[in-house]
């Protein structure tokens, strides 16, 4: 297990270096001059020149990359040109918000997806199965932004139950926090719930046909124990891997959801930064997200190894 972890960590470093280069290179493909975009409506030539010099925009690409990566290695992700705050500070401020949103969305997705998948598999071919598949199809094919706006119209404008947008820290008000996050978390978790449901269903169907399940039944175990202990436990492996991968999807889905619900998280930070050509912010956020995603995959592998002893060798 130790070797396994060390091996995976060894792969992590070159992956992150490659990712940092890709982030930097891809961003250069964005059309438009960042100094011009940041100089405001007046487009003062002196301000444009100042911004170019201050943020090394007048230097060749490799030099700019060296400046950036040098700073990153020293824990300095740079400074937002637009609002003049260190990117690391912004990232630390926004990370808990998006983290909370995605975790809540994942809890919603798992709470809906796994039981629905089990029911659909166990009651295969019945109305339950058809209904679960229909709901999953609906979840997969509903665009986030559309569902978000519909929910705002229903729960905020018509019923007045929940705030239409914004974010309240749980330390400020727990109810305020839940009331601002429940709609976006549902919108975000909705599509993932559908994916998890379908995968749980197919994994369960496969497992429930296996010999050891038949043996468990032959031993006279109750159907509940057979499904949950013998069936679900074995079916969960691929679902966990999928869950970790979908976590990455949640992070990208959060970009859109945060825009619709005006949640000051990672997604909103990066979208605003892209539109304003605030390069340091885009680079910092994407690097952190990519690192997080890579670590998540590592965690999924470890978890997978933990529940499946055959992989530890």
């Amino acid at each position: 297990m130790r070797r396994f972890i060390l091996h995976r960590l060894g792969v992590l470093v070159p992956t992150l270096i490659f990712v940092s280069m890709m982030i930097f290179a891809l961003q250069q493909l964005l059309p438009g001059d960042p100094a011009l975009a940041l100089a405001g409506e007046e487009r003062d030539p002196q301000v444009i020149q100042f911004l170019r010099a201050r943020y090394h925009l007048d230097q060749p690409l490799p030099v700019r990359y060296a400046y950036w990566i040098g700073g990153v290695l020293h824990g300095d992700l740079g400074e937002s040109i637009r609002i003049q705050r260190p990117v690391a500070e912004l990232v630390l401020e926004k990370l808990p918000v998006t983290g909370e949103l995605t975790v809540m969305a994942m809890i919603i997705a798992l709470t809906i997806g796994i039981p629905a998948g089990i029911v659909a598999a166990v009651k295969r071919g019945t109305a339950w199965d058809v209904a679960a598949n229909a709901v999953a199809l609906w979840g997969l094919s509903t665009p986030n932004f559309w569902l978000g706006i519909l929910m705002i119209l229903l729960f905020s404008v018509h019923l007045g139950w929940l705030p239409a947008s914004g974010y309240v820290s749980p330390f400020e008000s727990l109810w305020g926090n839940l009331s601002t996050l429940i709609m976006p978390a549902f919108v975000l978790g909705n599509a993932i719930a559908a994916v998890i449901m379908r995968h749980t269903r197919s994994a369960m169907l496969q497992v429930m046909r296996s010999d050891y399940v038949r043996t468990a039944r032959a031993k006279g175990l109750s159907e509940r124990v057979v499904i949950l202990k013998h069936g679900l436990r074995n079916a969960l492996g691929p679902v966990i891997t999928l869950g970790a991968l979908e976590f990455g999807q949640l992070l990208s889905g959060a970009v859109l959801t945060e825009q619709v619900f005006t949640i000051p998280g990672f997604g909103k930070l990066v979208v605003d930064a892209v539109f304003n050509r605030d390069y340091a912010v885009v680079q910092g956020v994407v690097l952190c997200t990519a690192s997080f995603y890579i670590l998540l995959n590592l965690a999924a592998d470890l978890l997978y190894a933990a529940i499946n002893p055959r992989l530890r060798a």
Partner: peptide, 13 residues
């Protein structure tokens, strides 16, 4: 988003 801004006004937020 102007639609979300308006929704917030209508909901009293």
């Amino acid at each position: 988003d102007s639609a979300v801004r308006l929704a917030n006004l209508k909901s009293g937020d």
